[in-house]
């Protein structure tokens, strides 16, 4: 685990998996958050990751998005082994994450949040000024390309509803020519209508060819949206199912341990 990601050959693995995680482990002190996780994300599909509270889902995706470094195991992206030291590197490799806490700065505007960490600048050499107009215009494009219902890209995020905030965070993840968008419980805090909108947004991303990893506790939603499902239990990935060959009851059984993998 010493190589960093370089845009290498895009020759696919056997099946067309964009991302392959193999034997990943991660501990925090004495807490073994992930004991053994191996998952694959097929290209252009929505893959769900389910499991009880504390199963290690968020920790796993934080390893994929460069927030944590795994203790051992491999992650490969388009057949190239990767080892991210920072979220920045993951983003540059094309892995975008919509975190459970959304990672939005309330006191900044929508467009500032969309461009956070990769602001456009203009200027001479080391003297660079923000290209505010350029960013606002591009932000409007990003937002309208996804038909997101946001009052204005110049409003502060603090004034947005839960669904609008979620939409801004998703637009940011989708708007950068990314390959993979990871979402950690994107509809957990939303009402019925806003949930429907976000689900529509996720379908739209799949239509645009993005690969999506979706963490959800809502098995109906998983059955509606996902193509495949990985199940985690107590820090290990224990099962994989195709959505058209499983049922909500079976998923519940796998998550709780009532059913053996």
């Amino acid at each position: 685990m010493t190589t960093t990601y370089e845009p290498g050959p895009t020759a696919a693995t056997d099946s067309d998996d964009v991302l392959v995680v193999d034997g990943l482990r991660k501990s925090f002190g004495s807490v073994q958050a992930i004991k053994q996780a191996s998952i694959r994300l097929p290209r252009g599909k929505v893959t769900a990751l389910i499991g009880d509270n504390g199963a290690g889902k968020s920790t796993l995706i934080r390893c994929l998005s460069g927030v944590h470094r795994p203790d051992s195991g491999t992650i490969s992206l388009d057949g190239t082994a990767i080892d991210f030291h920072s979220p920045d590197q993951a983003r540059r490799a094309g892995i975008e994450t919509v975190h459970q806490n959304l990672a939005l700065v309330d006191d900044l505007t929508v467009w500032q949040n969309l461009f956070l960490g990769r602001e456009l600048t203009r200027g001479l050499g080391p003297v660079q000024f923000l290209d505010r107009k350029g960013m606002r215009d591009k932000a409007k494009e990003m937002v309208s390309a996804l038909a997101i219902n946001v009052p204005s890209v110049t409003s502060r995020v603090r004034r947005l509803s839960g669904g609008q905030r979620q939409a801004v965070s998703i637009a940011r993840a989708a708007g950068w020519g990314s390959k993979i968008v990871i979402m950690d419980e994107p509809t957990a805090a939303l009402g019925v209508q806003e949930t429907a909108r976000v689900e529509e947004l996720i379908r739209g991303l799949r239509e645009r060819g993005l690969t999506i990893l979706l963490i959800s506790h809502n098995f109906d939603q998983v059955m509606r949206l996902a193509d495949g499902v990985w199940v985690m239990r107590a820090g290990s990935s224990i099962a994989h199912r195709q959505v058209d060959q499983t049922s909500g009851e079976e998923l519940v059984g796998l998550v709780t341990g009532a059913l053996a993998a």
């Binding site: 979220p87 920045d88 983003r91 806490n101 990672a103 956070l116 960490g117 990769r118």
Partner: peptide, 12 residues
């Protein structure tokens, strides 16, 4: 200042 966590995860 607004959110250290958000800044960190966006690569600031």
């Amino acid at each position: 200042g607004g959110s250290t966590e958000a800044a960190r995860s966006t690569g600031v």
